[in-house]
């Protein structure tokens, strides 16, 4: 049982840090940014380059990878999304896929399609009967730190207040003199660098592949949906809820409970649980929702 909790916590940490960026950008720009998950892949490859290819220290490589990804996110906004502020959310979603395809192709062209592994040998640890590694602890700690820092940024700084005002009521915020475009750039930078960090952590835990966005896509968007698309910290809680649901369902021996034959959900069905939870939440939420006239 402790093992399940530990595993869930670590997996939730990897997902959460990417998910909160999607919620952040949704809350300000009102569209689901599918390129965000690709930012995570780009960040992972950048960190890998600094660390494994250039031989820089691991912490510096990860931080630089994250910061560079933030820069790429801001540049993406300037080049593409800033010119499309006025189009429908559907249009922006489709464009974000275009950006994602382009970034994936760029990564695959430079690094090739094969899988790579971060050359790390984390120390094994155990606690209360659960086994994990030093890396798991680092991942969880980094995510908690990042979430804490974002909370401070949003609720304790002037920029954060401005960003929240922009998310709550963009028209009012603009008339009150909030520099919307600068705040939006800040949002892209924070979201992009968090994605870069999350992607690096994810790749350290598994491996590095140009199409790892497809592995992260469903759990990440499921976590954001569970938390409520525009709730930044809801996304983190959503990641935790999803991760617990996945690990519990996979580890419980359903067969013995129902038929007497031992059987549990195979691990390949993790994504089924992700999509299933998402659909379930949407169905529940629909009950309360009625057509709202603008």
């Amino acid at each position: 049982m402790t093992q399940i909790l530990v595993d869930s916590l670590v997996y939730a940490a990897e997902i959460a840090i990417i998910a909160i960026g999607i919620a952040l950008s949704y809350s300000v720009l009102r569209f689901a940014n599918f390129a965000h998950v690709q930012f995570a892949v780009v960040g992972a490859y950048l960190s890998y380059t600094f660390f494994a290819l250039l031989g820089w220290p691991v912490v510096a490589s990860v931080i630089l990878g994250a910061v560079a990804t933030g820069g790429i996110a801001v540049a993406t906004d300037r080049l593409v999304f800033a010119r499309l502020r006025g189009i429908s959310p559907d249009g922006k979603m489709i464009v974000s896929w275009g950006v994602a395809l382009f970034l994936r192709a760029a990564v695959a062209s430079v690094f090739g399609g094969g899988a790579r592994v971060f050359p790390l040998q984390p120390a094994p640890l155990s606690f209360a009967g659960a086994y994990f590694t030093m890396q798991d602890v680092t991942v969880a700690a980094a995510t908690l730190l990042a979430i804490g820092a974002l909370h401070l940024l949003l609720y304790r700084t002037k920029a954060g207040t401005a960003l929240r005002a922009l998310a709550g009521n963009p028209d009012l915020a603009r008339t009150r003199g909030i520099p919307a475009e600068r705040m939006i750039a800040l949002m892209w930078f924070v979201g992009g660098s968090y994605a870069g960090l999350g992607g690096t952590l994810f790749a350290m835990q598994t491996r590095l592949q140009p199409n790892m966005d497809l592995i992260m896509l469903l759990p990440v968007f499921s976590a954001v949906t569970i938390g409520g698309l525009d709730r930044v910290f809801g996304a983190a809680l959503g990641a935790l809820a999803l991760s617990l649901a996945q690990n519990l369902l996979i580890s419980v021996d359903l067969g013995s409970l129902l038929t007497g034959q031992p059987w549990s959900v195979p691990t390949q069905f993790r994504d089924f649980i992700a999509v299933g939870t998402m659909v379930l939440i949407l169905l529940l939420r629909r009950r309360g929702a009625t057509a709202q006239a603008r």
Partner: peptide, 21 residues
């Protein structure tokens, strides 16, 4: 071949973006 396929994918992504722009 792999590189050509990736360049094609990138082109498609670029086309999506450019058409919208």
């Amino acid at each position: 071949f792999e590189l050509t396929a990736n360049l094609r994918l990138g082109t498609f992504g670029l086309v999506l973006v450019l058409v919208f722009l």
